[in-house]
Each structure stands twice: as structure tokens, then as C-alpha cells.
């Protein structure tokens, strides 16, 4: 089985890289880009039957830093 983990910065946490992306898009002439937030996408190849609780523990213990990041799990 596969799982896809999407990690995003929590709302309110300043994202300097996202801001640079936003500015670069403006520099390319794309008007109206009001914001950009950069995150991470991690795809896991897992033993069949791995529980969502185990995947959640993987996120909390390593994949995301829950001080600054949120995560979303999708079972593929």
C-alpha cells in the first residue's frame, strides 16, 4: 500500500520561501498572486495493512514538526 503525506506550514507561520516564490511570480509578470506557501510531499511505500494510527505516529514523530507544521494523510 502507499500513503501520501502532505506537510504544510501552519497558518500564521511566516514562510520566507513562499514569499520569495510569490515575488518571483510577480517578477515574471503574473499579476494577482496574493500569496504562496511552500510545503512538502512525502510518498511512503508501506506493508499492506499498516494502520492509519501507525502512519499518524510516523508523521508526529518524524515527518512533520508539529510546532510549525500541519500534515494530511492520504491512503492511495
Amino acid at each position: 500500500m502507499k500513503a501520501r503525506i502532505t506537510i504544510t506550514l501552519k497558518p500564521g507561520v511566516l514562510d520566507p520561501q513562499g514569499r520569495a516564490i510569490q515575488n518571483a511570480l510577480g517578477g515574471l509578470g503574473f499579476a494577482g498572486v496574493a500569496g504562496a506557501r511552500q510545503g512538502k510531499l512525502i510518498e511512503l511505500d508501506l506493508a499492506d495493512g499498516t494502520s492509519e494510527a501507525d502512519i499518524d505516529a510516523m508523521c508526529r514523530q518524524l515527518l512533520a514538526n508539529t510546532v510549525i507544521e500541519n500534515y494530511r494523510i492520504e491512503i492511495l
Binding site: 511566516l14 520566507p16 520561501q17 520569495a20 510546532v67
Partner: peptide, 15 residues
């Protein structure tokens, strides 16, 4: 990251 100190250290504001 180990939870021994609060907060986190992110990319420098000016990159």
C-alpha cells in the same frame, strides 16, 4: 527538534 527546547528554527527571513 528533540523537544528539549520549545519553538523551531526556520529558514532565514532573507533566505
Amino acid at each position: 527538534e528533540a523537544g528539549l527546547l520549545p519553538g523551531a528554527l526556520m529558514r532565514n527571513a532573507g533566505l
